[in-house]
Design a protein around this nucleic acid. Structure first.
Lengths: 345, 345
DNA sequence: GATTAGCACTCTCAATGGCAGAGTGCTAAT
DNA sequence: ATTAGCACTCTGCCATTGAGAGTGCTAATC
């Protein structure tokens, strides 16, 4: 079997891919002959393309249209044919500008990162910042909202914040709330989840029944927060999915968008990333999630704090500009990491 | 001009609207004659429909198709023809279940509210919880992330929380951060934005140059947070826009989705609501925002705390089931309000 | 032996025309 | 005022056609 790839086949494959990325239309032998730089005729190209088709790298939508790259071709392209590239100065600047302010609200930053990434790559972008599971309580506040209602705010040692509404069975006074807030802050601060003992706390300094209930509920809220992993994914540019993926069929786009609404769907995807250190590209059927099997996913992880990784990525058509997208995702991850990561002391 | 509406015209109009909402197809005179309950023939219906067309309430997509309601017809329908309705027990229960937990993380609650509302109404749902502008600082924390980086966390008296990253020019020690955190908490807590004086704070108790810079930056971060209105809109069910609005043309759906990504676009919309006390329905061109002029918006406000309103609403096709949607939006607003509002003491 | 020109073949796409169906407006009768 | 009936109009669907694009194969060429 003399069916191996040689450099000419590679060049033809590359030309087909580039042309297809650019025009979105199947590529014919003449087009390739004109623009591949090889000084051979269209007939030769045809022969080579026939072999590439046998190898599973190209297909024809119908008998007499040009060729279209398969998922396997994109895989080959990504692995072998594109070197490491950096974003263009203009793109790099756009990303860097996002990070130049000296003080920056975190949620806003992540949200804007997803928007920027999506507009630069014409894809839907996902940014995910996980929280560490078991953490210590740094500060606790109980804010009175009404006679029967308080808000419990907890700050963890890593700087995560939870705000919980809590309903009380019995009315409490502002005074009680204030005392409970101080008491709880003092007793809980510095403790980890497993060291917070509801029972002994309730036995605290002379609260009435209402006060005791308040303490109990507040502790319950804190426990609930610390044990539930409140994980948000920031999504930007879902509109791009509609624009770029129309050719894949309306009802399919539909399903993908629905899936994007469900956060747990994305969490699986993004958590996978955090296992691998390197940038990951999943093309078509390589994706485990059925909804993604008609598109490509490019993602990577970035450091948040020592021992904690976040992840980000984009979802776009399989015929995306991989070189550009990869460089952009990588660059965004680097910058985000640099901005968030606390360097080791 | 004897062109006024009479009760028969109303009934015909209503039948056309109901049928169009149900089937999505233009409605012919026979269909109306069969299902409107009037004991008249199709020819009579035709005459009446011709008048309704002259009145601007119906149109024909082409010469010989059935009739389709105009925006004006929907307006008339909403104003005159539907009474106040409540959601079905099943829908009501679904909404109530969202609120039954005794302690609940707020962001998660709002997010899920938008998801639920969108699935129940088959529209895109928006939930907006504003923050009061000038508020007092209740608690302040500075968390060390690295030698050159801290996180400033501020809790306002209303229970809003901001987390800001801040970069420092000079390295600081854990000790300094800890001292500064306590110092700032004690000096700033209870103060409103305009009473926070950076200069005098920096003159605090014997910090070195690094400590002073830290204080200065932290205050800057707090000021930044308190003056910027960190406003988030929770969006659910954008996929429904694609599903329900296909007939309006792909590139238009495209523009709407892009607009939904931009939060400021939605903020205008949602803030408008908070001026009016009642539920608002804007149909087609009644919307000021061009992107919405091919769909309908149903929204209302809900109380968050005394003197503070949030708002929520849905965006769907003009041929939506207004009765159902309105009842759902209203019911969700009531429940959300009841859950969030602190009743006056 | 690799490459190429030439040609027949296949398939898509856009335009065309015909036909059934749905719905209308109008007129004349009730 | 209402209705039955009829001619008319327009869409949607189907089949047909012809141009165009691209292929695979064969035979000639370097």
């Amino acid at each position: 079997m003399e069916t191996d790839m040689d450099s000419r086949k590679e060049q033809i494959l590359q030309t087909v891919i580039h042309s297809y990325i650019f025009t979105g239309k199947p590529v014919g032998s003449h087009t390739v002959a004109d623009s591949c730089g090889l000084r051979v005729s269209a007939a030769t190209i045809r022969n080579e393309m026939a072999t590439l088709e046998k190898l599973g790298l190209l297909t024809q939508p119908h008998t007499s249209a040009g060729r279209v790259p398969t998922d396997i071709a994109y895989r080959y392209y990504v692995d072998m044919l594109i070197g490491r590239t950096r974003p263009s100065p203009k793109d790099a600047e756009a990303i860097e500008r996002l990070f130049e302010a000296r003080t920056r609200e975190i949620e806003g930053l992540l949200h804007e990162a997803s928007l920027l990434l999506s507009t630069l790559t014409h894809t839907a972008a996902l940014v995910f910042a996980p929280v560490t599971q078991a953490d210590m309580v740094r500060h606790l506040d109980v804010v009175m909202l009404g006679e029967h209602r308080v808000m419990v705010i907890v700050i963890t040692s890593r700087g995560q914040v939870g705000r919980m509404l809590a309903d009380l069975g019995e009315p409490v006074s502002a005074n009680t709330v204030e005392r409970a807030s101080r008491y709880l802050d003092e007793s809980i601060s510095g403790k980890a989840l497993e060291n917070i003992d509801s029972d002994s706390l309730v036995e605290g300094p002379g609260f009435g029944p209402a006060g005791r209930e308040l303490v109990r509920i507040a502790v319950e809220a804190v426990r609930g927060y610390l044990s539930s992993i409140e994980e948000r994914v920031f999504i930007g540019g879902t509109a791009n999915i509609v624009k770029e993926m129309e050719h894949a069929g309306a009802e399919w786009v539909q399903t993908l968008l629905e899936a994007m609404d469900k956060q747990y769907f994305l969490l699986d995807l993004l958590k996978d990333l955090m296992c691998e250190k390197h940038l990951t590209v999943r093309i078509g059927e390589e994706n485990r999630l059925r909804e993604l099997q008609k598109c490509a996913f490019v993602g990577t992880s970035y450091p948040i704090s020592p021992g904690l990784l976040g992840s980000l990525g984009v979802v776009g058509p399989t015929c995306m500009d991989y070189a550009r997208t990869i460089s952009m995702v990588e660059f965004m991850a680097e910058n985000l990491g640099r901005r968030l990561l606390s360097p080791p002391d």
